[in-house]
Design a protein around this nucleic acid. Structure first.
Lengths: 252, 252
DNA sequence: AAGTGGTCTAGACCACATC
DNA sequence: ATGTGGTCTAGACCACTTT
């Protein structure tokens, strides 16, 4: 009796074949998103999971290894495997690459909300978020400060129909981490983001927001973030003053 | 008889303990760098390597899996494992993140060498490259064009004492890929790069190099690249005109 | 002492590519 | 038909953490 026979006995159904360990991985992802275990909590041991799924410990291990590589769980020898605490208020933002010059670590920033509106999507937004014509988006304008000087002006857009009642939920705690909120409220886990960077000149609005003279060179960042199934979640444009901070990234 | 006993029988020597598969991995890296197999060539099968190293096939597999994850080899089911062809003239540059707007694929660029000199390192260079006081660097100035318009002005610096006879070697084929050249000539494999981005205004020199008016906002990229052992290899500052191209990156 | 993840081994069957 | 990597299993010993 091999597990494999279950999938091969239907002839020609090889197209949707997934290795056992990937199926286990998907099941684990679903459970984490459903909140079976809260972030920071201990998962059952490899042997317990293996018994539950009726596979060998090595198969569960391979699934957990991949989840660990993707930072969804953290493995600690002798202690166990834990759900990674991501996107909480006290965790440095996962995708945030702007660093204060000469600073060793993450530098906290204050955020000032300018507006939260619900409007028809622009063409760019519709394209970025894969929306149909006439769809609406929630749009957030805000400014981020470091030590009382404005450093980033950003506009976020989310599809209205994917996040029902978003305004009320967001207003409950405007300082909460957006991705953490989406994860906890809608079970949507943001795992990837594409960013496009360029230099631009501060226009009237941007210069007044950031307290610089019009024409000052600014770093423009356009981000589209994606969920675990690859669907676009959020679009964001950031305009950053980079005389005291820089965008840091490491390539491999 | 366990393999493990070989490392544990010396008491207290646990500090430099490395799992077998990591030792295998290191050996394989050394051989690839030494050129035992050229890029694109087929490695021995897992079983042959296992027999040679006197370990089980599973252990070799784990080493190869890590090398594949790091893009040093490419595994192909049914065919074998190949040395990744990296940094050849026809391979898109591995670390190059600048993309022409609305282009689907890699867009080739022409490079114009302005100068190659040997000079004392500046303070910044010495710090970036971990050089001792008074050390000298090879310094390359060049401009990169897309369709005959200058897009990038860059200055590269390499430690003189780490790359003997660099000038003559570089002059032999000025259009060659630098990292490929370092790999083939010095056995130095560049595997990581840190980049710092910010917006700046074109100064006199930059504006004349890029054919823009002084004060035009430009994207400044400062890169330090590292070898497989973590030592800094090269420092580079790029200044880029971003009205027709952008810096693209994806975060996970 | 007990339980956990980390490593290593050995053998089996599979899908894929080549001959 | 043969050989390759991909997956799965089962069992062993190890180091680490907690009880």
């Amino acid at each position: 009796m091999t597990k494999r026979s279950e999938s091969t006995e239907k002839a020609g159904a090889t197209l949707d074949f997934h290795p056992l360990y990937l199926q286990i991985k998907e099941l684990l992802i679903q459970r984490v998103l459903r909140g079976d275990w809260r972030p920071g909590e201990l998962l059952p041991s490899e042997f317990k999971l293996a018994a539950e799924f009726k596979v060998s410990q090595g198969t569960v291990r391979k699934a957990l290894d991949e989840l660990a590589a993707e930072k969804m769980v953290i493995r600690m020898q002798g202690k166990g495997t834990f759900v990674a605490a991501r996107n909480t208020r006290h965790t440095p933002l996962h995708f945030f690459r702007l660093t204060i010059d000469n600073a060793r670590r993450w530098q906290p920033r204050n955020t000032k909300l300018l507006s939260l509106t619900r409007e028809p999507a622009t063409e760019t937004e519709a394209a970025s978020l894969a929306l149909s014509a006439g769809a609406r988006v929630y749009r957030i304008h805000r400014v981020r400060y470091f030590e009382n000087t404005p450093m980033i002006y950003e506009i976020l857009s989310l599809a209205e129909d994917r996040f029902p009642n978003f305004e009320a939920i967001f207003r409950k705690d405007e300082r909460a981490n957006l991705y953490g909120l989406l994860e906890q409220t809608y079970g949507v886990l943001v795992v990837k983001a594409d960013e496009m960077l360029r230099a631009c000149s501060a226009n009237e609005r941007e210069s007044s927001m950031l307290g610089v003279t019009p024409g000052t060179p600014l770093l423009s960042i356009e981000r589209v973030s994606f969920g675990i199934d690859g669907t676009p979640i959020e679009r964001r444009r950031m305009v950053c003053e980079t005389s005291r901070q820089h965008y840091a990234t490491t390539l491999t």
